[in-house]
Design a protein around this nucleic acid. Sequence first.
DNA 1: GTCCTATGGTTGACTAGGAAACTATCTGGT
DNA 2: ACCAGATAGTTTCCTAGTCAACCATAGGAC
Lengths: 150, 150
Amino acid sequence: MLAVSQLTDHTGFWLRMVSNAVSQEFARKVAGQGVTVAEWAFMRTLFHQDPMSPSALASLMGMTKGAISKLADRLLAKGLIIRTETPEDRRAHRLSLTAEGKAKVPVLAALADDNDNAYFGTLAKEDHDMLRRILKALAENRGLKVMPVD
Amino acid sequence: MLAVSQLTDHTGFWLRMVSNAVSQEFARKVAGQGVTVAEWAFMRTLFHQDPMSPSALASLMGMTKGAISKLADRLLAKGLIIRTETPEDRRAHRLSLTAEGKAKVPVLAALADDNDNAYFGTLAKEDHDMLRRILKALAENRGLKVMPVD
DNA sequence: GTCCTATGGTTGACTAGGAAACTATCTGGT
DNA sequence: ACCAGATAGTTTCCTAGTCAACCATAGGAC
């Protein structure tokens, strides 16, 4: 059959379009603070449990340990985290925010709040609630639990 | 202020989570047909207007001309498109689907339909309609018009 | 007709991630 | 005690984008 559906027939198309716009705008905002979105996700995760091992980070962030290793290198170079060895297990490392890193998290969190508001604050409250409810249901349906970083 | 909002407080978080899951699942499906999502978007665009210049593709797909140039190289290597010079303007090229490329589009389009259905077909009709309406409104609010490829 | 600039496309340097190979260390079975 | 996996991280190679420099050609000003 040669019938090719329109792109805009797909709900996934609109979802992706809006999601990309929200993410790209956020990326621009955090870039103003000298960090990438992945770096922000890393710092936020550490902020809530500090210290943490690279592999725990990888699992929470849905990234490979290779990616985490390099991400940690960059944050280290920026002075936002420190990496220490553990005496109990000489293979393991512990990652921890520096004072500078800790101080940056609330600033970035405020940008995240702003960004969400800028996009979804324009919706009527009932539409916003509806949207959240449906998205959450879709996520739970699928058993999604990993942080969306990319 | 040290209050750092929860990740899950943000609608953008849920949006990204679902959007990524839908896209990654689709990427897996088209990979089974030997193409990437970007290649599919390229072919679909060409299918609806053939031939087309690389720069027109770039503009429609929201990618740089550099990316389109390399994408075209890959599709060329796979025998899915051809690249011809134009006599009127010796700088310009024209890209066109091969017979094989043309034949592949409906197959891939069916996968896109399947994927959308698999995710959103589970919603109650009124929820699905609501979701589409809200997403479209958000997109139009922001004047979004570029195809979300990434 | 000759420049000067705009345009179409390609290429190279760079970024960020995944997959898999690799190194070091730990742990459990014997 | 030893060795065979298992586990923690790093590194290398690959892919797929962007950005900016580049080359070729077109087209207009004069």
